[in-house]
């Protein structure tokens, strides 16, 4: 039986603005698609682009990164530094052939609950359009399967 494609999108959200916006969408009961999985980080400045590559390697169909608007950073300027890294990352991956629709970056303030929901809706729709992410090798993730647990301390 054919199933509709339900992508998994990993959203890296900063604790102070966008994570709060996502909470606000909740308390305001603004509905959006379930496909997003949030990874909370203290600041968008925490995000090493390697983590984003790993998200794609794990099998995420798309990623979303959102922090405080430029100028609003709880840690003064973390998002400014982040912006350069994220722009470079985005340009690199698009150049490498990854669909732009999978690589989503934005800023969303703690008051923008509605906007957060709209962004998620938009991103999910975009990713659905380009279909499942099949990995850099194009083979999909079915063969990997199982649990890839790294050795513990």
């Amino acid at each position: 039986m054919a199933k509709t494609f339900e992508p998994k999108i990993i959203a890296f959200l900063c604790n102070w603005c966008t994570y709060a916006a996502a909470d606000l969408a909740g308390s305001s009961r603004i509905q959006y698609p379930h496909n997003v999985r949030v990874v909370r980080v203290p600041c968008s400045g925490r995000i090493d682009p390697f983590l984003l590559i790993k998200a794609l390697n794990s099998g995420a169909d798309g990623i979303l990164v959102s922090g405080c608007h430029p100028g609003d950073c709880h840690y003064l300027n973390g998002n400014y530094y982040a912006r350069r890294r994220l722009v470079m990352f985005q340009e690199l991956l698009i150049f490498a052939g990854v669909e732009e629709e999978r690589l989503n970056f934005t800023w969303c303030s703690a008051a923008e609950g509605k906007r957060f929901a709209e962004i998620v809706e938009d991103v999910v729709e975009q990713v659905k359009k380009v279909g499942p992410w099949k990995g850099f090798d194009g083979r999909g993730f079915q063969e990997k399967g199982g649990m890839v647990l790294h050795e513990l301390s």
Binding site: K3, F5, E6, P7, K8, G59, D61, G131, P132, W133, K134, G140, F141, Q142, E143, K144, G145, G146
Partner: peptide, 13 residues
């Protein structure tokens, strides 16, 4: 995701 059971992307979760 387990081999054979899960398809590409996230189709069958």
């Amino acid at each position: 995701r387990e081999p054979g059971k899960v398809q590409a992307g996230g189709v069958a979760h």
